[in-house]
């Protein structure tokens, strides 16, 4: 049987959106996220909530290898969002990554064009650890002075990937880091340095 979607589609979607909006507007802060979903594994409730809140027929989804392996994940997302599931990362508006340590290179996703940098992908990574007390030093718009953020698991060379992404500003990818019950974000405008 298909897992249920939001119990209250209007207000649950609004709550998830506001958490993501606040996370993107204030990089380095961790926003609470209570998805109330039980999607098919390995799709986490947080990834599912963000997809249900933001994806639809105009915003195709890309699934990483782990998510693509279980057809129930695509069925769940297709039914609840109406979004097209694409196999081509360059087409995706949102990329759902259940295994962030094996996240493909950011260059495989759309980063927008110089005239339209908004035509870019947002990566949603299912991390298991998220902390704002240790880890990287963040600076940039949305951050008062500097902020800290630690997230794991992530690829070993994540910092150089993020540096390349930031160097391409205003083009680039935005990252949403979703841990159980919590969400943080690293927009392309954020400079990330080693902690």
């Amino acid at each position: 049987m298909l897992a249920h979607g939001f119990a209250d589609p209007v207000h649950d979607a609004q709550g998830v959106f506001r958490a993501v909006m606040d996370a993107l507007a204030r990089p380095g802060t961790i926003q609470p996220l209570a998805p109330g979903l039980a999607p098919p594994a390995p799709l986490t409730p947080e990834l599912a909530a963000i997809a249900l809140a933001l994806a639809d027929a105009d915003a195709p989804l890309w699934l990483d290898a782990g998510l693509a392996r279980n057809p129930a994940v695509a069925d769940f997302l297709r039914f609840h969002t109406g979004a097209r599931i694409t196999g081509d990362p360059a087409e995706a508006a949102f990329a759902l990554v259940s295994d962030p340590a094996a996240c493909p290179d950011l260059g495989t996703f759309a980063k927008g064009t110089p005239a339209y940098p908004d035509r870019s992908a947002t990566l949603v990574l299912a991390v298991s650890i998220l902390s704002d007390r240790e880890g990287w030093h963040l600076a940039g718009p949305g951050i008062r002075g500097s902020a800290r953020l630690a997230a794991a698991p992530l690829p070993a060379d994540i910092l150089s990937r993020l540096a390349r992404n930031h160097a391409g500003f205003p083009q680039g990818i935005d990252l949403i880091l979703a841990a159980p019950g919590r969400v943080a974000a690293l927009p392309r405008s954020t400079r990330v340095q080693e902690g």
Binding site: P9, H11, Q14, L24, A53, T122, D174, P187, S189
Partner: peptide, 30 residues
């Protein structure tokens, strides 16, 4: 009417635009 007048599809479209606008400060998102 739906909550806050707009239908959910329109809200999602606007929300996606807002997220891009925040990530690219000062850039006008269509």
């Amino acid at each position: 009417y739906n909550f806050a007048y707009l239908d959910e599809g329109t809200k999602r479209m606007i929300r996606r635009a807002i997220l891009k606008a925040i990530a690219i400060p000062g850039y006008q998102v269509p």
